[in-house]
Amino acid sequence: MPEKTEKIAVRAEPARPQPQENTLAPLVDIYEEADGTVVLVAEVPGAAADKIDVRVDKGVLTVWADGRLEKPASDYAETYADFSAAQYFRAFALGDEIDRDRIESSLCEGVLTIRLPKAVAAKTRKIEVKTG
């Protein structure tokens, strides 16, 4: 059964200090939809919704997630390890035309999607030329 998408609150708070050890930058895709909404898709496997922190402050969007998996009991020997679970952290500069209050983020199957809509005033508007 596919996982439900969970909403993640976006907080307007100063950024959390970036942890140094064992921090990875999550892979992201950033794209723009037809109406100008910017969508950021970040891979944070292993991070549950309550271990994700998305904040916007002074034009900087920061994403922090704790993707540390539970280690199996100590009587398991590690035969092969490609990845060790880690904390994820990445910061992005937001353009002026993004509407800070309407930023939404949600988590589904280890993928965090953040939607950054353009402020209405910033959308391109045609100006009518009046004659006479």
């Binding site: 596919p2 998996l69 092969y80 490609d82």
Partner: peptide
Amino acid sequence: GVYPPVNVFNGPNDILVQCEVAGVKPD
């Protein structure tokens, strides 16, 4: 070229294999 990353743990009664496949649906 090496995807998905895999961890293999060998326990007394079973073997645990973890694969990181974010964004892949179970189907």
